[in-house]
Design a binder for these strands. Sequence first.
DNA 1: ATATAAATGCAATGGAAGTGCATTGTTTTA
DNA 2: TAAAACAATGCACTTCCATTGCATTTATAT
Lengths: 137, 137
Amino acid sequence: MKEIEKTLENKNVRPTAMRILIYKYMAEKEVAIALTDIENTFTKADRTTLYRTLKTFEEKGIVHQIDDGTNISKYALCEPGCNCELDQDLHLHFHCSNCDETVCLTAHKLPHINLPEGYIAEDANLVIKGICDKCSS
Amino acid sequence: MKEIEKTLENKNVRPTAMRILIYKYMAEKEVAIALTDIENTFTKADRTTLYRTLKTFEEKGIVHQIDDGTNISKYALCEPGCNCELDQDLHLHFHCSNCDETVCLTAHKLPHINLPEGYIAEDANLVIKGICDKCSS
DNA sequence: ATATAAATGCAATGGAAGTGCATTGTTTTA
DNA sequence: TAAAACAATGCACTTCCATTGCATTTATAT
Ligand SMILES: [Mn+2]
Ligand SMILES: [Mn+2]
Ligand SMILES: [Zn+2]
Ligand SMILES: [Zn+2]
């Protein structure tokens, strides 16, 4: 428990009860989390609080937002030492069309892309859709 | 004009007045088009008609949908001979954070990705965000 | 203890996607 | 050609998620 408090404080986020719970929840799940997931888990808390918690976590580099093509924002805890604010650590994401779960494939970094003249890359998003390991077996 | 009618008929889409106009509009633009773009252009037509036109075009392989990360679906005419229904012709897309325009970089095919055991890829989406050639000059 | 600032809760809004159904227009085919 | 069948369009309405303003509560600083 104290671990999580430390982690939050290190990122300049006050470790409130709700924030600790959400962090713990995300740490236990191995998949990307949507706001509605958190909503359904912590039904006593207000949706806005949960929403703002995710936003705060994102701003402070605790989680990164994932756009998996479902038009539902998902979030996952950043790896220790990840610098996704600096657009490094760009890994790919996999979205399973069967179970609708999205996972970070942090080991799979994005390949470098040579753009045409005049184009300046600042960020990239690569999502693979298909069947995940759990659903394919 | 007759060109467009032929194209639509070849794809088993009836060349109605509205559809021809929308096709023409998209052909003239070199960027991906959102429903609201079409809405703002053809203000007399109903939004649903325009919406369903895009859906029809997509189903019949006349346009492909583009998810550029803005959470607004965009569409672009398929290249002649493109087989995006078969998940081939997977090219990357570039979204300019300055002018908010999205373009197909059809010359840039997606690199092959080796996924971990058990993962089966069916589709992929790669979007580069940054500054486009027009905005960087 | 008081002042200040941050976090939370409540209510409302906005934008975009999607659907049901009636109406209009077009194509078959008898 | 007229009737029947089918496709396209228009209107109204719904759903879903993201986002904001403001009041209230809670925590921190002086
Ligand atoms: Mn990730
Ligand atoms: Mn494209
Ligand atoms: Zn799955
Ligand atoms: Zn631009």
